[in-house]
Design a protein around this nucleic acid. Structure first.
Lengths: 217, 217
DNA sequence: GTCTATACTTGGATAGAC
DNA sequence: GTCTATCCAAGTATAGAC
């Protein structure tokens, strides 16, 4: 709460019904992407979930696509805050991967990953929408790149694969794991891979530490 | 040609117009998934591409979803033949990865990967369709697993990650790379990763060979 | 058996009410 | 400024023509 509270440009005293409607529509758009998919996320479907008239989609957002983009932007923002806080709190690479695993599990269970996948797949047919979705996921590539840099910092691994390419692969893997686990109705194989990545990082960390010890002898 | 030629159960001499219609619809469904996306692949859109009456979708396939599944099955079958032949021809792991890279490039350029991604993402909202799509991609997981087994055979790597999980990751990565490269309109980063995988396998192959030599000394 | 014309439903968008 | 009633286009599905 207290996010945008009252105080719109109209300064109306009547509890800012407009921004309440906007927010209800954005929340409903997210739900609809999750449960109806991009194909089923129509103005009617979204408005029904929000409990408002379908016309309000167009009044407040201009088009269904723009409302869906607002939904994706909100999910992206919420999750970026979550991931950022977790990454800042982690002190070792192994900790970082473990905490990322927990948040990824949330992404699967709460449908955030589904929203992202539906928007990317749905936007493929439209160049304009595609470009806007691409702009919204670009920060995630950068975020992944920073996280990877933190993991491989001062490690001989850094030279093996360019971190930009590695970040690209990590984001791609994230998307693919969501798709497979969602269509299979089974998230276990995906989570197992995260656990294995966690172990791999621990092993690499130990190797790097010992090689650094050797170097400084 | 000469695939099912004439000779339907009716035995009609008039060039089997029915199966020609069916094939035109399946081909159009594939095109529509590729260019219109799952959301845009309506009976009308597909029938227009095929140059036939929309009602024929329902006469021949019962529903749009079933026609789309037929399209996916056809793409899957065509590509499995292509991949299988290539894998059989490759004699070394490095060759295998290189040849897989070439076919993956085809998958991106010819839209086969798009068809798969659109169907998986589109099927997410419907449990029935989801299960059918899952059944169609299961053979790909098995195929990936066999290929990975061939690569890591007699290698110490085999013990690091279960091949089933590795196959799951490879398929997920394939799907994610298609999504990212499609939405970005740039396939280069994805192809670069394949090249790097190719180099990695060559390095691992050399390491394994030398360790085997050592073992047998 | 194959296909077309058409009925019916849902979706996108806006003119006008409040 | 906010919202609703309503119009038109597009989608699904089938009854009936050939």
């Amino acid at each position: 709460m207290a996010k945008s509270g009252r105080a719109s440009r109209t300064g109306s005293a009547k509890a800012d019904t407009a921004s309440a409607t906007r927010q209800a529509l954005v929340d409903a758009a997210i739900e609809s992407l999750r449960f109806d998919g991009f194909a089923g996320a129509s103005a009617r479907a979204i408005a029904t979930r929000a409990g408002v008239n379908p016309g309000l989609v167009f009044y407040h957002f201009g088009s269904v696509a723009d409302l869906l983009l607002a939904g994706l932007a909100e999910v992206s923002q919420r999750r970026m805050a979550r991931y950022s806080a977790a990454v800042d709190a982690a002190t070792t690479p192994a900790q970082l991967v473990r905490v990322a695993t927990d948040i990824f599990r949330e992404d699967l269970d709460e449908g955030y990953a589904t929203v992202l996948v539906e928007m990317i797949a749905g936007a493929g047919a439209s160049p304009e929408l595609g470009a806007q979705v691409a702009a919204l996921i670009a920060p995630w590539r950068e975020f992944a790149q920073r996280a990877i840099e933190a993991i491989v910092a001062q490690s001989p691994l850094a030279a093996l694969v360019p971190v930009g390419d590695a970040a690209y692969a990590v984001v791609a893997l994230y998307l693919g794991l969501e798709m497979l686990s969602h269509v299979d109705g089974n998230r276990e194989p995906a989570l197992r891979l995260f656990d294995q990545a966690s172990q791999l990082v621990e092993v690499l960390g130990a190797l790097t530490a010992s090689s650094i010890r050797k170097d400084s002898q």
